[in-house]
Design a protein around this nucleic acid. Structure first.
Lengths: 112, 112
DNA sequence: AGGTGTTACGTCTGCCGTAACTATC
DNA sequence: GATAGTTACGGCAGACGTAACACCT
């Protein structure tokens, strides 16, 4: 109960919410129901103990806390992407090495 | 099935693993079983499609991919912390404002 | 009526602990 | 035998979808 059940999905959700300006748009952007967006944001706000998003008549707006959080949130997503890319690059490299090794040992078996 | 079931816990886990140098130490550091650490790292590696940690006789060591990922992982944790701190500060401020407002309206009711 | 977000409720996924197993010293 | 990691299995929390709700235009 103590530690963050904050998840990447909640961060993603917050960013999508701000970028699209509405719960339903954010929902279809991420590919979940708008109920999930509502749930997720509620969880995040409860977890942090602050309201992040002001639900207004014309769309939404960030609270002061929300504004502070958003920058960090974006950076988190960027880093997550960087991790995926680094991994993808490494995995690609690995398969090259493997392929080369196979070719090499085949020639060896044939006798140089 | 497509999107990241990468979680903050896995990131935290990877960092703890590198910092402590062993699965069991990382486990007690985070407060989970060493099985959970094994599970979590396995999930992360599967998800990314790369081996991150080389399990050796004397402790562990990072692969090249692992080294690249680690920096981003640390930054992610820093940002997560920053988010929590920003939220905590905002929440503290909010309760101050509330307390002041209560005091103020009490004096009003008393008449000036 | 048509759009918004919230909420109640049920389902189902997937995380993690226990414990048994393998391996290394 | 002890220490370190993996794996099979099962339970349980919690995330999310459906649907009914309230609100605003």
């Amino acid at each position: 109960m103590n530690l963050s059940h904050i998840g990447f999905s909640q961060i993603e959700l917050l960013v999508a919410l701000v970028d699209t300006g509405s719960f339903s748009q954010a929902a279809s952007d991420i590919g979940v129901s708008q109920s999930a967006v509502s749930h997720g944001l509620a969880r995040l706000e409860t977890e942090l103990g602050v309201t992040l998003v002001e639900r207004g008549r014309r769309g939404i707006s960030l609270t002061e806390a929300g504004r502070e959080v958003l920058g960090h949130a974006r950076e988190v997503l960027r880093r997550l992407d960087a991790i995926r890319q680094a991994a993808a690059a490494a995995s690609l490299l690995a398969s090259f090495v493997l392929a080369l090794r196979r070719l090499f040992s085949r020639s060896l078996r044939r006798g140089s």
